[in-house]
Amino acid sequence: MSAYVALSAVLFAVGGVGLLVRRDPLVMIMSIEIMWNAASLLLVAAARFYGVMAGQALVFIVITLAAADVAMGLAIVMHIARRGESVDVDALKELKG
């Protein structure tokens, strides 16, 4: 179990560093995806080691929510790109549509 916890923590930290380091919103969304996956790995490992199916059911929900999250993020990126602005998160100053 501790090996899975360590792997999940490493993946979560890698995703967090990616979120901080990159300025391309696409790659930032991919980093968030890595963090979602680290969380679901921890849930699956906990389900296996405690022998409870609730963990796997929650991972099903986590995967669904991650997909919805990616769709919304990409819609925002597309909206910004179609307005002809640079998709550099440092250059974006306002969220107002």
Partner: peptide, 21 residues
């Protein structure tokens, strides 16, 4: 920040690991 965050996660997560069933 990532290294500090990883350390915090490991300290929180690793000290109570159940035996595999």
């Amino acid at each position: 920040a990532g290294v500090v965050f990883l350390g915090a996660l490991l300290v929180m997560g690793l000290h109570q690991a159940p035996a595999p069933g």
